[in-house]
């Protein structure tokens, strides 16, 4: 087990290093870093001063050493727009994104698993088929389009829910959250649902396929033969066995949820990291873009590492095959 953990941590570090090198190449080696790191509105003297201060006149390897050293200190440059360290601005927006992503994750499980089990138990019924058809739609329609339709229906036509923003927030353990106020919840329903729809479709398909497979197993037949109630068979015997793959996939998907939040946050004007990224792209605020990328990479790599380790703790076959190879 220890061999496996060490090996897996090593892989994560390699992934981080690879991404850091790619970002460095993208910013410093391809194109002119002066354009990327220095405010486009600066004059000649300022450009010369900043070039010297950032060490852009030094050889490439020295610049790389500097970049890595700054990376370890969490220093990714200063935002042109806000005039404050890029890392600080991103971290300030992190809670809003995490709140949205976690809510969406819970929603996709709470709604997706029951629907998937139902479709798996009755694959040929009208209900089962409609669930599958809906999941194909949720799967294939672009996220931003679903969000626009939600705004059109629930905010513009029906006027039930607000179309954007975060609403009233309260402070919880030093972090501002929306889910504890009525107004915040009203603002959160549409974006959270929008972000959840894609994962929900994934959960539905996964749960359905697994349910169909598990239903054919001997132990389910045995449980039936033993005369257990079908509620007990579904809740205990089927659900237990389908949850491992579902939870694994969802864990891995939490990282992509943060990336997908870019779209949802833009559509619903939710003040998270994703909205910040799009605003920064439009304002050419590149230090913030680079900081966003590095932070997201760290988050995704960490999530993947934790999920893998948990999975191997739950399922010995995984770590055995990994150690062998």
């Amino acid at each position: 087990m220890i061999v496996y953990i060490l090996r897996r941590i090593g892989q994560s570090l390699v992934a981080l290093a690879a991404m850091a090198i790619l970002v460095f190449i993208g910013v410093y080696a391809i194109g002119n870093p002066v354009d990327i790191l220095i405010n486009p509105e600066a004059n000649q003297a300022e450009i010369a001063a900043t070039t010297a201060r950032l060490g852009l006149d030094k050889p490439l390897w020295e610049q790389f050493a500097r970049f890595v050293a700054h990376l370890f200190q969490g220093d990714l440059g200063t935002s042109f727009v806000y005039g404050r360290p890029a890392t600080e601005i991103i971290l300030q927006r992190l809670p809003a994104t995490m709140e949205l992503a976690l809510t969406a994750l819970v929603l996709s499980l709470v709604i997706g698993v029951p629907l998937g089990v139902y479709a798996g138990l009755k694959p040929d019924s009208i209900g089962g088929r409609s669930v599958m058809a809906a999941s194909i739609l949720g799967f294939s329609l672009p996220n931003f389009w679903q969000g626009l339709l939600m705004i059109l229906i629930f905010a513009v036509l029906l006027g039930w829910l607000p179309a954007g923003g975060r609403g009233e927030t309260v402070e919880l353990l030093g972090i501002r959250v929306s889910f504890l106020t009525v107004d915040g919840l009203r603002h959160m329903i549409l974006p959270a649902l929008n972000l959840a729809l894609f994962k929900m479709s994934l959960v539905i398909r996964l749960t359905r396929a697994n349910t169909r497979e598990v239903c054919l197993q001997e132990y389910i037949k045995f449980a039936r033969a033993k005369g257990l109630s079908s509620t007990r068979i579904v809740l205990v015997h089927i659900l237990k066995n389908i949850m491992i793959p579902v939870v694994t996939i969802l864990g891995l998907e939490l990282g992509s949820m943060i990336a997908f939040a870019i779209v949802t946050e833009t559509v619903f004007a939710w003040p998270g990291m994703g909205k910040l990224l799009i605003d920064s792209i439009n304002l050419l605020d590149r230090p913030v873009i680079v900081a966003y990328l590095m932070l997201t990479v760290v988050i995704i790599v960490t999530i993947n590492l934790i999920v893998d380790l948990l999975y191997s703790a739950l399922d010995p076959r995984v770590r055995l095959s990994q150690v062998k190879s």
């Binding site: 993208g26 990282g255 990336a259 997908f260 870019i262 779209v263 873009i289 990328l293 993947n304």
Partner: peptide
């Protein structure tokens, strides 16, 4: 291991 939309957007 990284979402396609993230990579494309950053590029």
């Amino acid at each position: 291991s990284f979402p396609a939309i993230l990579i494309a957007l950053i590029l």
